[in-house]
Amino acid sequence: MAVFTEVSPAQAQVLLDHLQLGTLSSLRGIGAGIENTNYFVDCTGDDGHLHRYVLTLFERLTAEQLPFYLRLMQHLAQRGVPVPEPHADAAGEILFEVAGKPAAIVDRLHGGHQLAPDAFHCDQVGATLAQMHLAGRDFPLHQPNLRGMSWWRQVVPQLMPFLDAQQAELLTAEMAFQEHLAASAEYAHLQAELSGPIHADLFRDNVMFEPGEGPGRERLTGFFDFYFAGCDTWLFDLAVCLNDWCIDLSDGRLVEERAAVFVAAYERVRPLTGAEHRLLPALLRAAALRFWLSRLFDLHLPREASLLKAHDPRHFERVLRERIARPWHALPGEAQA
């Protein structure tokens, strides 16, 4: 969500006029993130009230790929999952062009991030994640996880020259482990029967909460930033979440109490199968590997962008080493929020 492409107020107003959303009052670039150009857009509608949106210009994804993401958000929103719904024009189109780039405008969620979550927050995210997975089962479009195994195989040779001997050894060994897992019959069953559209990047900064009832209690208002979404195993999506929502950020250690609550909340909506319970430790490693690779790539092979700041890859190197050293199995019903 860095600013790669500058958008003028006049350019933004053209899209607002096309969508009949009102008169622009504020346009502000969003500095967090590394994939797309994003702006907060505030405008005054015909009703005289202030309305808030997010304008996204897509820097890597193509016009052929983008309908998957935007229609998925539309599909989920229409089924009651709290996600930003893209705005359509009179013809039902939701993908446009701004400053020469594919673009879309979506509702801005209320609230703010919870960057120090407790079990209460993990319970809400876990249950909503399962709701999202079930709601996506009848989504008609398909696109693979573009940061999955095929991408790993492509970037590992490019990254090896930047690694020290211990890092190279870790990466080589983990790729061999994940290749073996991907070739297994049990994993093939997950792909065939227990998969569908996933968020694939549901970190703490991609979920919004607002104040709720009771002191210190917050209500989840939505998931956003679906532009890493793809079709993959639901278990991988769960593992991505556990590796962010349920860890000690200082050392990557899994906070098992929080993780147990997260999984229990997920299972209230969609119980995991025996195969999923068995494979969860391996998928936690896969999720850590995916983000170690992407952070290495963004650090060593970056693109230029205004406000761009790459994340430290050492964090997910620590997470991966932790998941290898201390595999974690979630036991059904072991914790409740």
Rank of each mutant, 00 (worst) to 15 (best):
L115S: 04
P140N: 05
H133Q: 08
Q20F: 00
V255L: 15
C122K: 06
H199P: 05
G230H: 08
F203C: 02
R258N: 14
R314W: 12
F203S: 03
A310Y: 06
E276D: 02
A325S: 11
G222F: 02
Q131T: 15
S25C: 11
A88Y: 00
D138K: 05
L19F: 08
L95W: 08
Q158D: 12
E213T: 15
L220D: 14
D205F: 01
A286R: 14
L21I: 05
V156W: 00
I94A: 15
L50Y: 01
L320V: 11
V319F: 03
V319H: 10
A305I: 07
G31E: 05
H199K: 08
V81N: 03
P215V: 13
W234S: 04
L272N: 03
V125H: 01
H315G: 10
R270C: 04
Q65P: 15
W234R: 04
L76N: 07
L66F: 08
Q166A: 14
A176S: 09
G333H: 04
E93C: 09
M1F: 04
T37S: 15
E169T: 12
L163E: 10
E97T: 14
R28F: 00
K309N: 07
G22L: 09
A305S: 14
S195Y: 01
E276H: 10
A173K: 09
D164I: 00
F209K: 11
D298E: 15
L115Q: 06
L308T: 02
P211T: 05
I247T: 15
Q20P: 00
D118L: 03
A275M: 07
S195C: 11
M73K: 07
F68A: 02
I34E: 15
F203T: 10
E210D: 08
A188Q: 14
L307H: 11
V54K: 02
M149C: 02
V106P: 00
Q114D: 12
L284Y: 08
L202T: 03
V255H: 11
H18S: 12
A176Q: 13
L307P: 00
Q158N: 05
V7E: 01
H189F: 12
R28H: 05
W292P: 05
H142Q: 10
N38A: 10
L272W: 15
